[in-house]
Design a protein around this nucleic acid. Structure first.
Lengths: 236, 236
DNA sequence: GCACATTTCAAGCGCTTGTTTGAATTGTCG
DNA sequence: CGACAATTCAAACAAGCGCTTGAAATGTGC
């Protein structure tokens, strides 16, 4: 219809570079309006939630016109979805830990929980991005499909696979799934109720050293869970 | 100004009866518009979130006029706040478990996790109500005061108190707080990522019997954490 | 039946929302 | 420069929002 065809529906598939903001679209550089919109959107969505956030505020923060979202992404929902395309370094980190079967179990657990808790120490934008993912669990905005469940699946699968090796099982049974969820819960809780953690036990997450201590403890706890499950299976 | 003074600002303090819907206001019966509004509001807020929910939809679901909220509660925020006045049976249940110091530790842990996981098995309205509380943790709507959002505090305090007794400490240190959060995380995860739990391991939460098995397992895991921490302290 | 308080109602208020439009601006290549 | 595409802009759109209004309906005590 119009002569000016919006850029976004042509180039959405191209992933130009690496880094936390790769996959923004085609050749997005750090001063792009598109980049600034994403940046601002993360902050506003993290603060207000999907419904509570207004496109005007996002554009204002990005120093762009209120029509910018429509031009670059199509609409509010598409912008929100674009945020969930951004790769999350921390999660990628998690995927590395268990591939090294040579490492002793304690070390692998350490890597596992370090990958998990590293979120707590990284820059605010990444934390906000993580928060958006967590929030979609509790309050699906409705604009994301079942992508969320699918996003977690590979990580859960990898964890259960490793546990299968540990328990010499060919396929995970329900008890193993329960164990896997418990192990994830150990680390997730610090992220989920972070304000409370900081209120009740300040200093637990304050410094990188403190977080490393927490990694150590979580690894210990994780090992205790595995051993408890091993004892339970042996006692049957 | 007007001759018709809304009822809600007179009688908001009266708590007429017991049960899950006590404290609705003055003498709310099950066919009251007020009752139906609360009922509908729980569903809509749970589905859409505070910002996403519309007062019109709530009223429509309640079979009431769009002005009903204003008349009975004042405004949308007050209605939302009223939901958080509703007592939640499950949480009350949790508070019972540790008062009985005579019970062996395993039993107390069982009660602890049963209280936690019982939410998963109760009626949908209670679950939705629980969801609203959980959501306020991750995404504060902004209309609740800080007293209502810090609902976790007493339970965390009680748990640490019990752990103090277990470890013969006069006051919790950071390691004990970490242990307490880990123990809570064990049970919270099933609630937090429930869709994933049901997708990856269907049947884990399906029946009351399955949930009781999960309670047993969680108690086992909780005990394992405590013992691991005891070993750690002994090894220092 | 009457007077009165309580509750419900249809209608619409002002406002913000997400989105659209067409023109103005900027960048780019010949 | 001049032609053309890519981008930005101010302005306004329709729709939905929370909330208000004044009257109609309903219940209540005499």
């Amino acid at each position: 219809m119009n002569a000016t065809v919006p850029f976004h529906d042509l180039a959405a598939s191209v992933a130009p570079a690496s880094g936390p903001f790769a996959g923004l679209g085609a050749g997005a550089t750090r001063d792009d309006t598109r980049y600034r919109l994403v940046r601002a959107a993360i902050g506003v969505f993290a603060k207000q939630g999907y419904h509570g956030a207004s496109t005007r505020e996002i554009c204002e923060r990005a120093g762009a016109n209120s029509a910018a979202i429509h031009y670059h992404f199509g609409d509010k929902a598409a912008l929100y979805q674009a945020l969930f395309q951004l790769p999350m370094q921390q999660i990628l980190e998690v995927s590395r830990w268990m591939d090294d079967a040579a490492l002793p179990r304690t070390d692998r657990l350490r890597h596992f929980y370090r990958g998990m808790l590293s979120v707590l120490g990284c820059d605010e934008v990444s934390r906000q991005l993580m928060l958006l993912h967590a929030r979609e669990q509790v309050e699906p905005s409705g604009v994301l499909g079942s992508t969320q469940t699918q996003a977690i699946r590979p990580y859960h699968d990898r964890l259960t696979l490793l546990l299968c090796r540990e328990f010499k099982l060919t396929a995970p049974d329900e008890a193993l799934h329960a164990l896997a969820f418990a192990m994830v819960g150990l680390g997730t809780i610090y992220f989920l109720v972070r304000p409370e953690v900081e209120a009740f036990a300040p200093g637990l997450l304050a410094t990188p050293e403190a977080r490393e201590v927490l990694v150590e403890r979580s690894a210990l706890f994780g090992a205790a869970l595995i051993e408890a499950e091993q004892r339970r299976r042996g006692a049957l």
